[in-house]
Structure formats: C-alpha cells, structure tokens
Design a protein around this nucleic acid. Structure first.
Lengths: 144, 144, 144
DNA sequence: AGCGTTCTAGAATATTCGATT
DNA sequence: GAATCGAATATTCTAGAACGC
C-alpha cells in the first residue's frame, strides 16, 4: 500500500519526483535525507514540472511548497556534496524524510482565514442535524 | 442470473459493461481488479453509454457513480502525471471488485431528503447559520 | 484594448472564442446574439479548450460558466438555425451579448468561502432568513 | 418510493499575481 | 534573484436540487 488517498496529490507528486532516479539531475534527496534539492532550476521548471503539474513555473511550485509548510534552507548540509553552481535550492519539511513516506500524512496544507471558518461551519452542521431533529419533534441525546 | 433483483440496474449495468470483453477498448477492470478504468471517455460516452442508458453524457454517468459512492482515483499510485493517452479515469468502490459480484448488494445509493422532509430541512438551515455565527463569536442584530 | 484589466481572463477568453470565426465549427453566437452555442462538445473539449485553458474537460469549462452565472438553456431559439445533432449546448448570461463587450465588466464571479466578503454575506443571509421566519410567525430556539 | 438524468453548486486543492518582511 | 504569504481565480471531484418515471 502506497500513500493513502488522504495525502494531497502535490505531496505524492514531489515524493515521486524525488524518489525517481530518472530525475536525479534535476531533483534529489539531500545526503542526510532530511531535505530535497533542486539542481537545475531552469531545466527542472521547464522540463520536469509540466510533466506533473499544469504549469512550468518555479514560482508556482514554490508557492505550493509554502502552502504545505516547506521551507527553503540556505545552509549547506555539513559534509554534503556541494553542487555549487547547480544547486538551485534546498527545501525541507519536518515530515518529509527519505525512507518515511508514511509521514506524508502528517503534512497539512495551510488553511486560509476563511477556510478556518469552514471548520466552524462544519461543526455547526452537527447543530443543524440536532435542530432538524428537534423541529421534527424527535428526542435524542446531546451531540458531542 | 446472479445479481438479485435488489441490486439497482445501474450497478448491474456497470458490472456487465466491465465484464464484457467486447468493451475492452472502452472500459475494463484495473489490473488488481479493485477499480475499473474508462479508456476513451469520448468514445465511451458516445458509443457505449447510449446502448445501456437513456443518455450519452459522461457527466450523467459520473453523477450516477457518485450517487452510489464510487470515487475517482488517480491514474497510477506513484502520483506521476502520466496520462496514458487513453485512460480517462479510474473509478473505485469498496464493494466493486472483480470476481465478487455478490458484493454489489452492499452498494447503496445515497439517500436524499425527501420532498416532505425538505421543509423541515429548510427551517433547520436557519438554525445552522445562527449556530455557525454564534460558534464564530459573531454578533449580529436583527434586521430592522 | 477593449476589455479592461478588471475582467477575469475566463470572460475575455470565452468572448474571444465565440468571436473568432476560426472556431465557427465548435462554438458560435446564437442567431439572436443572446447566447453562445457549443457545437461539437467532444472536439471542442479536446481541441479548443487546451489551447486556452489548462485542461481539456468540458466539465471544468461548464463549472467555470456556472461560477460566472451562465445558464444552460434548452429551448431552441425561434428561427435559429437548428444544429440538431451537433449542438451540444447553449449557454447564456444576461451580460454576455454579441456586440456588447463592454457588458463583460458587469459579470461577476460568484463569491466563495475564500473571499473575505463571505462572512458578511453569511451574516446577511441569517438576517434574511430570521426575518423570513419571524414574518412567518415561526419560533425557534437556539441549539444549546 | 426509489431510481435516473440534468444543471448547478460546494469544497478542496492548484495556479497566478502581487504585497509584505 | 529572497522568501513567504494573502487573495483571487482556476481546476477537480462530489453533492444538492429539481423533475420525470
């Protein structure tokens, strides 16, 4: 069983991208496996991205990374092979680690202000059902 | 005749569609037998659907699938974009599995509020919205 | 430059699509100019849509039309050329009329929960419904 | 009474653009 | 050419509503 269906497509896609050795010259795990590295941003954006997303813009890819809480890290990892001219960026998330695909389920997309409202709204739906039943004259125990 | 009369026609029809090898270029089981695949959506809609349903719209077919709790699933598990030019969609239901026609009886059409209940439902919606606001801590005054 | 920058891209795109006579076999104005007609849905979706949008699904196109308040109309326009088998759908919006591109600015995308206005919108709805109930003489209590 | 078909809307994610720091 | 975030639109999948049978 691979990543469960509860994992957004974006996450399973970067996972697959980093794992696929055919992409090794564009994107790969850092040596310690705690971050991934984009090696040639231009070619990565123009050649790899459109195969997996509906765009070929690095900026859009980065926006998605930020939605999911990834951070760009500037520091070179100690002892890591230096890609110097080719390393375009290193991105990291606490739950994105080589060998731990199961952690993907812990990565949450950030909610917008009004998405937050929706949660409340959903809570209220329970209330809706209660009210519905009460109006119908049906008695039952409290929700929650 | 296997399928009992308690199984809605829609379910027996997709079952027959998927099983019939003459439809192999339009619709078929996935390799693991846990989902079915529509191969060429346009031709499937225009050539196959009208032979079994009163329409030739993919959208109506999909609406039916959703009524019965089928879910569309990503083409392949790796998350790679890769559309087989021909694979238009893969649909899955926990009780729709190759070799287990008897499970069809467990697939239930979702219920909708009956006409009579709708009035109560509408009343309750007010309550829902009020509750929503209260939970949100929003204060509002009455109109006028 | 006709369409001002305040007009969403979707609207300027359908306008351009309908106006472009090279698309005449796929999409065109109705005879009276008050709606547009999609002539061959399958070919329109697969050949035209991807040139202008990031997809080739009629369903996504229709969802966009609905976001902007377009309605599908079934009735044949009186006196219009009948396309019979080829007419896949006729869509209409009060402010989408041949010869009146300036009206596009009046077409508004429906608001969603992701817009800040939504909260106010919801407030107003409650008020409306509460008033409605009160006028109806219906009493209701708060949920807990 | 539940099922089938159609049109529209809800909800979540995806993409773009620009503001903010 | 720094990086992140807010907001609006775009795309996808699913559900609501209405109506006919």
């Amino acid at each position: 069983m691979k990543a469960s269906s509860s994992v957004p497509k974006f996450l399973t896609k970067i996972w697959a991208l980093v794992e696929d050795h055919r992409n090794a010259e564009y994107i790969c795990w850092s040596q310690d496996g705690n971050s991934f590295i984009v090696l040639d941003e231009e070619r990565f954006a123009k050649e790899i991205l459109p195969r997996h997303f509906k765009h070929n813009n690095m900026a859009s890819f980065v926006r998605q990374l930020n939605w999911y809480g990834f951070h760009k890290v500037m520091q070179d990892e100690t002892g890591a092979a230096r890609h110097d001219k080719y390393c375009s960026g290193r991105y990291q998330h606490h739950f994105f680690k080589r060998g731990h695909e199961e952690l993907l389920t812990k990565i949450k997309r950030k909610v917008t202000a009004s998405t937050g409202d929706k949660r409340v709204f959903r809570k209220a739906k329970v209330c809706l059902l209660v009210c519905s039943l009460q109006i119908s004259g049906i008695v039952f125990g409290m929700c929650r």
